[in-house]
Lab assay of single mutants.
Amino acid sequence: PDDEWKERLREAEEKNNWKLFEELARKAGVSEEKIEEWKRRWS
């Protein structure tokens, strides 16, 4: 299951679909801290 969400995150990233990325990350149990960090790195 871990690989599956990583794959989906990669797809979201490729499409630059931040909303989807964020949603998937939350569902995968990624901390808000980590998500914010990704946001900063991404923008």
Rank of each mutant, 00 (worst) to 15 (best):
F21W: 12
K19P: 14
W38D: 02
E37H: 03
R10I: 09
A28F: 11
R26H: 02
A12H: 07
L24W: 15
A25N: 00
R40E: 15
G29L: 01
E23N: 04
E14C: 15
L20E: 14
L9R: 06
L20T: 08
R8D: 04
S43P: 11
E7P: 06
S43T: 11
G29A: 01
E33L: 05
R8N: 06
E33Q: 09
F21M: 04
R8M: 12
I35S: 00
E7M: 06
K15Y: 05
K27E: 10
R10G: 05
W5L: 09
E37W: 06
K39H: 10
D2E: 11
L24D: 02
K19Q: 12
A12D: 04
R26L: 05
A25K: 00
A28Q: 05
E36P: 00
E33D: 10
R40P: 05
E13M: 15
L9D: 04
A28N: 06
E32R: 06
E32I: 05
E32Q: 07
R10M: 11
E32C: 12
W42T: 02
R26I: 05
F21S: 00
E33P: 03
R41N: 14
E32V: 04
K19N: 11
E11M: 10
N17H: 09
G29Y: 00
K39W: 09
K34E: 13
R26Q: 03
E7R: 10
A12E: 04
L20G: 07
W42G: 04
W42D: 01
W38N: 02
A28W: 09
R26G: 01
K34Y: 07
R40Q: 14
E4W: 15
E14L: 13
R26M: 02
N17M: 09
R40N: 14
G29E: 01
W5Q: 05
A12W: 07
E4A: 11
E4P: 08
F21T: 01
D3T: 09
K39I: 09
D3L: 11
K39F: 09
W42P: 01
G29S: 01
S43F: 15
K19H: 13
S31V: 02
K15M: 12
L9G: 03
L9W: 13
D3F: 12
D3E: 12
N16P: 04
R26E: 01
N16K: 11
V30I: 14
A12M: 11
R26S: 02
E33M: 04
D2C: 15
K34G: 02
R41M: 15
E13S: 14
D3Y: 10
W5P: 04
E11Q: 11
R26P: 00
W5E: 04
W18K: 01
K27L: 13
N16D: 09
A25P: 00
N17V: 06
L9Y: 08
K27M: 14
E36Y: 04
A12I: 07
K15H: 11
K15D: 10
E37M: 03
A28Y: 09
K15A: 12
E7T: 09
S31D: 05
S43I: 14
K34D: 13
A28E: 04
K34H: 06
N17W: 14
W18Y: 03
E13T: 13
E7D: 11
W18P: 01
R40W: 08
R26K: 06
E13V: 15
N17R: 07
P1K: 10
L24F: 08
K15C: 11
R8W: 07
L24K: 03
W5T: 06
A28P: 00
S43L: 15
N16T: 05
K34N: 06
K34W: 14
P1V: 13
W42N: 02
K39C: 07
N16L: 09
G29I: 00
E14I: 13
L20H: 12
K34L: 14
S31F: 01
S43Y: 14
E7A: 11
E37P: 00
E11S: 08
E11F: 06
E32W: 08
W38M: 13
F21V: 05
K27I: 11
G29W: 00
A25Y: 02
E22I: 08
E32H: 04
G29V: 00
K27C: 13
E7S: 09
W38G: 01
N16W: 10
D3I: 09
W42Y: 08
E22V: 10
A12G: 04
A25M: 13
E7F: 03
K27V: 05
R41E: 14
N17A: 07
E23S: 05
D2M: 10
W5N: 04
G29D: 01
W38F: 11
I35E: 00
A25E: 00
W18I: 04
D3Q: 11
K27H: 07
R26W: 01
R26Y: 02
K19M: 10
R40K: 14
K19L: 10
W18R: 01
N16M: 08
E36I: 04
V30K: 01
D2R: 08
G29M: 02
N16C: 15
S31Q: 03
K15I: 07
S31W: 01
D2V: 10
L9N: 03
E22N: 01
I35A: 00
E23G: 02
K39S: 02
P1H: 12
V30H: 04
L20R: 08
R40T: 12
E32L: 06
W38C: 15
K27W: 07
W42S: 02
E14K: 13
F21G: 00
K19E: 14
P1D: 09
A12P: 03
S43R: 13
I35D: 00
A25S: 02
L9E: 04
D2T: 12
I35N: 00
E13D: 08
W38Q: 03
S43G: 14
K6C: 15
G29H: 02
A28D: 01
N16R: 10
I35T: 00
S31H: 02
S43C: 12
K27Y: 05
E14W: 09
D3N: 11
W5V: 06
E13F: 15
L9H: 04
R26T: 02
W42Q: 03
K15T: 14
K19C: 14
R8S: 07
F21D: 00
K15Q: 12
R8A: 14
